[in-house]
Simulated assay, not measured.
Amino acid sequence: SHSDVSVFFNSDDVGFTDGFAGAFCLFSATDERLCSMGREYRSLDKEFDNHACGAYYQADADCSYIIKPDFQSNSKDIVLYIKSADFVNPDGTKDFIRIYDTSTINRENLLGEFNDPFNSGDFPKTFIGTRDEMAIVFQSDDTAFGRGFEAEYCSVAKPASTCGGDSIISNHQGIIRDHSCGPTYYAPMDCSWILTPSSQNYTFIAVVFNTLDLGDGAVVEVYDQTNDVLYRSDEYLDNLDDGTRIISGTALFLPASEVIIRFIVDNDADLRPGWEIAYQTVTETGICSGESVYTAPQGVIQDHALGNFYANNQECNFLIQIPNARAITVRFDAFELEDGYDFLEIYDGAGWNA
C-alpha cells in the first residue's frame, strides 16, 4: 500500500556471480490483476490466471473466481482445465487454490485442491461441473510466492462424460474431433459418433486420422454395424502386425453403411491433445493396384490417395506413355519406404525389360 519501495544492492571487491534482474509493477486500486475481490465470468468459455506482477501471483491474496456462464435456455456442463499450478509453501500450505462444484464455498462441494506442485502430478487437470456454476478460491500469505495457476473453462453438451449422448452424422464428409473446446480431451469420457451417410451411392466410408495423440487410459475404437471392434488405437494382441491398430495418419476404408467411432477415457487418464478424424464416402480406396496408364502431358501418380501410408502387399505399375514425347521427367515430391523390404523401380521404356 506504500507509494515508495527501495531496493539496495551491495557487493565487495572479491569475486562475483550472475547478479539479478527484477521487475516492478504499478497497480491501481481497481487493477484486475489484483484479486482482493471476487471475479465473475459469464462467457461460455474463457482463459484466466492469477498472475499479478511478472507472471507471479501476489502476496496476501484472498480472492474467488466464479464461473457462471450465461447458458440462456441451453443448459450445458462446464469443463474446467487447470493447465498449470505452481505454489511456494515454505511454511506449510498457506498458498493454494481450491475448486468447487458451485459458487457456494464449503467442503461438501470441493472438487480439488492444489498447493504443492511436486505432488500434483501432470497437467492439465480437468474438472467437470455437475451444476451451472463453479468457483475457484485462491489464497496466499506474505512469505514467498510462485507462478500460481493458469486455467481455462468451456461449455459442452450435457452430459459431458458422454459428449451429450451419441452423435448421429448423416453428412457425406466432414471433420470429427474428440473434444469441442479446451487444450485436451477431459476425463472421464465415453463418447460415440455414428456415421450413417444418407445416400447409398458409395462403396466405402473412408476414415482418416489426421492427428492421434493419446495418453495412458484413453483409447479410440472403430466399429461397423455388426458392433465388432475392427480397429483400436491401443496395443492389443498383435494388432500392429495385422493392420488393425490405429496410429496418426491411418486411413480406414470400411465397406459398411454405418461406422461407429467410440472414444473412452478413464478417470485417471493421462490427458493429451487427442484426435481429429476426416471422413468421406468414396467409390474406391485410391490405393494403387495392377497397372495404370497415363497419356496426358502432365499428371500425378501416387501409391495411395488418403492418409499417410501405403498398404501392405501392394504391387503397382505406372506406365507413362505420352504420344510424340521427346523426354519424360518424373519428379518425386515425397518419398519414404520401409528400408530393405519395399521398393520403387523406374524403367526407361514400357516394360520390365526396358
Rank of each mutant, 00 (worst) to 15 (best):
I261S: 01
D178P: 01
Q139S: 11
S3L: 11
Q58R: 11
I97L: 03
I301S: 07
F24W: 15
E235L: 05
D4E: 12
V222T: 08
A21M: 09
N115S: 15
S120A: 15
G19D: 02
Y347L: 02
D224K: 00
A256D: 09
T102D: 15
D77E: 06
E221R: 14
L80V: 06
P297H: 09
T250K: 14
A144V: 01
G351Q: 06
I264Q: 10
P90F: 00
N119F: 01
D242Q: 09
A85D: 05
V5Y: 00
M37T: 12
Y236S: 13
D60S: 14
N109G: 04
I194H: 07
A157I: 01
F335L: 15
I261L: 09
F87D: 07
A354E: 12
L271V: 08
D268Q: 06
E221L: 12
F96L: 04
I105F: 02
A354T: 08
D86Q: 09
I261A: 01
A55G: 08
R147I: 00
F123C: 08
H51R: 14
Y153P: 11
R331P: 03
A85C: 03
S103H: 12
H2V: 01
A327N: 11
G92Q: 03
I194Q: 09
M189D: 10
G286I: 04
F318W: 11
T226N: 11
R42T: 10
D13L: 06
S257R: 13
T226Q: 09
F24I: 12
F20H: 01
F20D: 03
D95R: 01
T30C: 10
D234A: 08
G148F: 07
R245P: 03
G146D: 07
A157C: 05
S233L: 04
P255A: 15
F253H: 13
H179G: 11
V293W: 08
S155N: 08
A311H: 11
C316I: 00
Q314A: 12
Y294P: 00
D132P: 02
G351R: 06
E152K: 14
